[in-house]
């Protein structure tokens, strides 16, 4: 069971949240000159590490805000939560 600290609402049960995949993925631009390979990388080829992962979550059954979380995919420990738009490091 995860306890996720929403930056707006504080710690809440994992059942209030939905995972949104890897964080800090930049959409390639300009769209008309993006190669098929780059577009596939953006859409499908994401980090899937055994260990620390920066990912997005949304507080779907709460304030409905998106934010970023750094979580260990083996222990599920969360060591950092930060808002969208804030730098990763």
């Amino acid at each position: 069971m995860l306890l996720i600290a929403c930056p707006w609402c504080g710690p809440r049960d994992e059942t209030e949240f939905v995972n949104g995949g890897e964080a800090h993925i930049d959409r390639p631009t300009p769209a008309e000159s993006v190669s098929d390979a780059d577009w596939a990388a953006y859409l499908f080829f994401h980090d899937n590490p055994r260990g620390w992962l920066a990912e997005r979550w949304v507080h779907a059954f709460g304030c409905r805000q998106w934010f970023n979380v750094e979580r260990d995919t083996v222990t599920h420990e969360i060591r950092r939560v930060w808002r969208l738009g804030e730098p990763r490091a």
Partner: peptide, 13 residues
């Protein structure tokens, strides 16, 4: 369990 995981146990919800 709808978030990435390598833990071979699964969560309660």
């Amino acid at each position: 369990d709808l978030y990435p995981s390598y833990a071979q146990r699964g969560n309660l919800p």
